[in-house]
């Protein structure tokens, strides 16, 4: 059972990795990564602050 779960997890990981590397457009990935990155004050990009 544990072996099957591990194998399925590895296959799922490979599928996600393949889709990410091959199929998602660069601009879309950049947008996703920008949203995911936590920004602190002074990092820039805040519309209200402008810094």
């Amino acid at each position: 059972m544990a072996e099957a779960v591990l194998v399925y997890a590895l296959v799922a990981l490979a599928a996600v990795w393949t889709v990410w590397k091959l199929f998602l457009p660069r601009s879309f990935k950049a947008r996703l990564l920008r949203k995911a990155r936590k920004t602190d004050c002074g990092d820039g990009g805040c519309e209200t602050c402008g810094d």
Binding site: L13, A14, A15
Partner: peptide, 13 residues
């Protein structure tokens, strides 16, 4: 080590 490896896993599946 990256794309080919992941694709080989998918082809095996």
């Amino acid at each position: 080590g990256t794309i080919i490896l992941s694709m080989m896993v998918l082809i095996w599946f």
